[in-house]
Design a protein around this nucleic acid. Sequence first.
DNA 1: CTGAAAGCGCTTACAG
DNA 2: CTGAAAGCGCTTACAG
Lengths: 339, 339
Amino acid sequence: MVTIGDVARVAGVSRSTASYALSGKRTISPAVRQKVADAVAELGYTPNAGARALATSRTNVIALLGQFFEDEFAPAMLQYILGVTDRARELGFDTLLVSDSDGVSALRRISDSRMADGFVLLNVAENDERLAPLRSASQPAALVGLPGNSEGIDAFDLDFAAAGELMVERMHELGHRELILVSQPEHVVERGGAYVWRLANAAAARAATLGVTLHHYYAASSQPEIGKDLNAFLDAHPDATGLLLNNEAAAAALPNVLQARSLAVPADMSVIGRYSETFARTFSLPYSAIDSAPDLLGRRAVEHLVSRIDGTADADTHVVDLIAPIIDDRGSVAAPPSR
Amino acid sequence: MVTIGDVARVAGVSRSTASYALSGKRTISPAVRQKVADAVAELGYTPNAGARALATSRTNVIALLGQFFEDEFAPAMLQYILGVTDRARELGFDTLLVSDSDGVSALRRISDSRMADGFVLLNVAENDERLAPLRSASQPAALVGLPGNSEGIDAFDLDFAAAGELMVERMHELGHRELILVSQPEHVVERGGAYVWRLANAAAARAATLGVTLHHYYAASSQPEIGKDLNAFLDAHPDATGLLLNNEAAAAALPNVLQARSLAVPADMSVIGRYSETFARTFSLPYSAIDSAPDLLGRRAVEHLVSRIDGTADADTHVVDLIAPIIDDRGSVAAPPSR
DNA sequence: CTGAAAGCGCTTACAG
DNA sequence: CTGAAAGCGCTTACAG
């Protein structure tokens, strides 16, 4: 393997000069700079990452801690992951993907062994167990998802409360007075999936003030159960004219359900979902939806994390960045049918 | 940070003794071993990964190189990734996820900087550009996907040729004589997606020998185009009684298409797909399908890679492991309707 | 503007 | 059974 010693020898300078010529951390005469550059090109030198990490206490690696639950919608996770890895590379970092089921010990292991300069946590729960080891870690972190207490850590998430309000308001404006909200399964909530109740509670509150009837249900996250659930909700509320979906599987299953019931969208039923643009495209979901923006959230989390690693972020202030919901209009919302 | 020097001091031994006590690489008296263990527990010692990598030339990291194309079916990729990361952890490795669009230079960068002990490549193409730098890399590799020339590298893939034959044979056995095979878009083939023509060619050959008419089409990989494509194929071949799908998007879109045409499965139309069990479950796809087994392939690739890293695999022999296709029966195949 | 040297935290021959 | 020392490949004060 070619080392900086080889570069120095070929260039006819000392190792320190070679190092400085490469890092630019002190002024080097043009002639020497050129000789070093030539030697690097000739030998094909790349610094040894482990040696550099040992000398600088910097790995240029960030650790991405995912949590992959059987009962959650796996396909959506990849978008977050790619947002993180892509943005990290742009900023000069590689990404260690950690999928250990025991996130707490994985976090300790990575942190204590100094394999990474910082952490991005995905799928953060209301009382996420990983926050305690994270707070005592020596590396900074950024969360995707909003825990109950994000003190001392930067957090990035969709503003699910505003999303719930927006869904109800849009329906109300158009004249809808009875809506059904379909959430993720209840055990997602029990596990700490705060986004579920943040959206649902806000939607319920807004509905109450607007005089809109809102029926809220938890529903399955996979077929065929979700199809049955949707039929049951529609059977139970024949006068409902709008569906709000905070459940990807429900969105994927709905076209078949509505078709079987001969309900046209938006003539008979208006629908607003909450899922990513990629998800909509992949499955051709024909519903207007609030973009959950996984790519954007991943990128933001990394950007902020890197500013912490570099020490450019304000050490005393931590951000909670809730991105405002935007409805991608796919034409699935209109005035309710007149009776 | 706590180092092995701290452990040695607290245990009252030398650093080398502390190191040996932890690695077990030479015999240590029980008393000393206990003192070292106590010191580790008391101090909460974890070895510094960079320092260890520098001393041993081993990182205990594998690099996973993905290729994520806009026009391929992204959700399926996560299953491969998790197969790799999970199995790697079981074997004591962490995983660096590399999603650079320029896989060639990413490979060089990781290899030359010695950030990883080996590589797993996903989505390997017929003439994959990454194979050249891989062959000159000092670390071993395992491929998921079968290139035209896998000499000197281990490769793991579904046996797509056998899959094509199996699909045709199953249909033929039940009496079908006219089939439609729907492949991925043609540009996937042009890019080197050999699995597309491996399945298609084998299916065509088997159909020819069995006297079955097989109409082969490339089709879109997303909605709404794929829905239109499917309708066009069915319009063009009204006597076809069986559909073979080597295209996930087609499988996802087919239920709506068939319902709109009032075709029941399997009474009017038999269907065999090729996608993962997870994919089937997530989207409730009701078709019998050959399991593409992404999780298994990822795990196998890692296992073999680790045996190469450890030097336990035979250095002179490289494996091409094509897993045999298995049809998960979901009841979508039956005898054709009598006319 | 450049060089010799120390040090990052490990592991592992070498000696005893 | 254990210790002192060298070395892995970098970076960066310290000196000039």
